[in-house]
Amino acid sequence: MSDTTAPKGKLKSATPWLIAPGVVWMILFLVAPIVMIIYVSFWTQSTFSIDSTLTLASWKNFFSSEAYVGALWTTIRLWLIVLFLTFIIGYPAALFVGLLVKSKTVSTVLLVLCVIPFWTSFLIRVLAWRPMLGKEGAINIILMKAGIIAQPIEVLLFSELSVVIGMTQIYVVFMVGPIAFMLGRIDRNIIEAARDLGAGFGRIFWKIILPLSMPGVVVGAIFVSVMVLGEFATSGALSGRKVNLLGNIIVTQVGSLKWAMASVVGVILTVLLGIVVAGFLRIVDLKREL
């Protein structure tokens, strides 16, 4: 007996050591910084210095400032718009790649094609929208040459619209991937069974395909939400400073050494992300799918 239990016992005592590096890493680089940010958000900020006297001043400052609260709403609004657009654009694409393409090879090739934009850097991808959307950019030139418009459309660049276009283009692939993966896992016989029972394509989509792909939608939505809510680069590069997201505020506050206010915004952003992710996880029991 002792022979058979010994390795098991050894394994048991080794288990904590297996997760130790991860735990240490997470404490050092995740838990400690978050605790620090929460702590710093209560520090006293003066123009050129900061000291650790606890105060609610920065928090009061945030919620009484129209600009800051406005940024919170802008962030939420843009997040919802981009989330909606990535879903609306991404789902049909995923449906095609994951379900309608019969050959697994073709569907893999199509998925790889989706990530080709990622072969270039994030900043380039964002900045590339400027010559596309600008007043003398590609879209305006084409539309004018084609005689569809007489004046260049100015709202295309340095507006909320350009930020939405930029973010949707960058993040849509994170929606396509997980959904296509879930759709690819659906047993084709199930769909045929539904057809055999008399259901047309619409019924099959709403009653079978969509529910079975929900885990993919939720994972995709979490990816997109986490990235969009923390965004600052796209809005910085494409909005002409007209659109301020929480991320942009953190950047400017840190830039002017306003650590306390940056921490307040950081905490708010973290809480917001937590609520959003928890909300999505309530929709689908992901544990069942893993």
Binding site: I190, E192, A194, D196
Partner: peptide, 13 residues
């Protein structure tokens, strides 16, 4: 026409 699949093809959800 009814069809019964070899792998049953029940709707898992």
């Amino acid at each position: 026409i009814g069809f019964v699949f070899q792998n049953f093809a029940l709707f898992p959800h």
